[in-house]
Design a protein around this nucleic acid. Sequence first.
DNA 1: GCTGAATATGCGCTTATGCGCATAAAGGAG
DNA 2: CTCCTTTATGCGCATAAGCGCATATTCAGC
Lengths: 96, 96
Amino acid sequence: MILPILSALADPTRLEAIRLLSDGGEHCVCELMRRVGATQSRMSRHMQVLKQAGLVLDRRDAQWVRYRVNPDLSPEVRAVLDAVCHAAQSAQRSAA
Amino acid sequence: MILPILSALADPTRLEAIRLLSDGGEHCVCELMRRVGATQSRMSRHMQVLKQAGLVLDRRDAQWVRYRVNPDLSPEVRAVLDAVCHAAQSAQRSAA
DNA sequence: GCTGAATATGCGCTTATGCGCATAAAGGAG
DNA sequence: CTCCTTTATGCGCATAAGCGCATATTCAGC
């Protein structure tokens, strides 16, 4: 279903987080919270929401938890994510 | 900004409504409410949200108000909308 | 085992969201 | 002017969402 996906993306903290993850790499919570400007608990909870929506996967690595975009997204959902990230990027560019 | 767009789309009633409008035509509130299965006030309010987000335009025609997808959406937003509608349609197809 | 860093979670609070109900407003028909 | 249809809106309510704070949990290093 696309609705939980949209709900998950419709939040500034989560949108920024998944935009950062869209470089294809893995990023831990502490890095995301620094770059997004969120507190620890807030960042953690938002990542849970993205995970629950199936948009991201996490992996324990020592004391860190590395998040990445779910590589097995359906083509349809993938297209939505790409379009959203592109639109977010364009908006940011024109604001700069 | 893409965030209000996503918030507007992240609701079942609104998503279904804009999916119906995505045939490119104009549709009045009474038709939308029937096809979506919503009460009148609910439908009216949801259409206001879509309008506020810039996704749709409305036009008074006698006692009806005809809604249509905003033809002047930026290409980026248009791409998001298309991807979302396509994903919603696919989900519906596989559920049938 | 102890300490510190990284992450998750329980709790209470505040605000936003969606709803129904009733009513107002706008316009056509007689 | 009156009545009917269509649409919008004020109001109150119930629930969801997001937040900070404190605390629990997990793991590495000593």
